[in-house]
């Protein structure tokens, strides 16, 4: 997307400047390359790739995904190729794009999180998003979201070995989110992304069985948007660091809502499955909205809600 001279769509996540506030949510956009054929990867603010661990992860048993009313429940179990394979096979192919690549990272111990961040230091990865909120893995994930000592340990360690911005991805599944957000800010996080999926389930009444093998999974999609929006609004009152809004954003209208609620940027997730160019369309739509409303600087939308 050409940047219109008169319109500024740039936003900052810590020291990272994005040409526009639209990113792709980890786990819904593969390693980015899967979408080359369907959209212009240069048109968005950043690509956040599938969660990376030290070693390849096999993932959960199937079924891993089921559709619900205006949403989906997934329990993939963070299947990924591992940091080494990502750096060797995927990142070089993403180099031809000008869009920053953000790595979502996770581990099964504090040390593993730090090690993954360490492996990404000095690479072309522009920031890391730390997943302390996946509801679908036994080790790591949610267990960390509830453990303040672990969060402090992860943040201290990651910040020590990784010099670019560190985003903490938060879950509303454990405890009051404002408190957790404030704790992450005080512990040195550069930005927060929220919300990760909500724990949910679906039952096949003929088989008397849960529809996904993991029993519970993470609910995403339009169904969770109002919940996500309220969390972003509440957290924006509690912290000063930039927020990245996530949760059922399907188009530019949804994105503008999140920005008005206090998000500096947004991540498009489930929408990518339906419309592979949803993120590109969202970025373009925001510019259209700005033109129509004579908004020169996108930053003036952030937190502009009258209430």
């Amino acid at each position: 997307m050409k940047t219109n001279n008169k319109i500024n769509t740039k936003v900052n996540i810590g020291s990272l400047e994005l040409k526009n506030p639209v990113m792709t949510a980890s786990g819904t956009f593969g390693y980015g390359l899967e979408f080359e054929e369907y959209m212009d990867l240069n048109s968005i603010g950043a690509i956040i790739v599938k969660g990376l661990a030290i070693k390849p992860v096999k993932g959960n048993k199937t079924p891993r995904l089921v559709e619900t009313t205006a949403g989906i429940i997934n329990a993939i179990g963070l299947q990924n190729i591992g940091v080494d394979a990502f750096l060797k096979d995927k990142l070089p192919k993403l180099k031809k794009y000008k869009t920053p690549i953000i790595a979502n990272i996770y581990g099964t111990s504090v040390e593993e999180y730090i090690e993954v961040a360490h492996m990404l230091e000095g690479t072309d990865v522009a920031a890391v998003e730390v997943n302390i909120s996946c509801p679908n893995v036994k080790k790591g994930g949610l267990a960390f979201a509830a453990d303040r000592v672990a969060i402090k340990g992860i943040l201290d360690g990651v910040k020590r070995v990784y010099k670019k911005p560190v985003i903490m991805k938060l879950s509303p599944n454990v405890g009051p989110l404002e408190e957790l957000a404030r704790f992450c800010e005080d512990s040195g996080a550069d930005s927060l992304s929220l919300i990760n999926t909500l724990v949910g389930m679906k039952i096949d009444i003929e088989k008397k069985k849960p529809c996904i093998a993991n029993i519970y999974g993470g609910l995403s999609g339009p169904a969770i948007k109002p919940v996500a929006l309220a969390f972003v609004h509440k957290v924006s009152k509690a912290v000063k660091i930039p927020l990245i809004g996530i949760g059922g954003i399907m188009n530019w209208c949804d994105a503008v809502e999140f920005m008005m609620a206090g998000a500096t940027a947004v991540e498009i997730g489930t929408a990518n499955f339906r419309e592979p160019d949803a993120s590109e369309k969202t970025a373009k739509g925001i510019v259209g909205y700005m033109k129509k409303n004579n908004i020169k600087d996108i930053k003036t939308i952030i937190g502009s809600l009258n209430c």
Binding site: G27, G30, E34, R64, L65
Partner: peptide, 26 residues
Amino acid sequence: EEYMGCGIGACVSCVLEIKTGDTTEY
């Protein structure tokens, strides 16, 4: 046939367990 999310290999939902050497992978 497996339950698909994206259809283009991004979401890793529709996996099958495939033998590779002594182990298996999805």
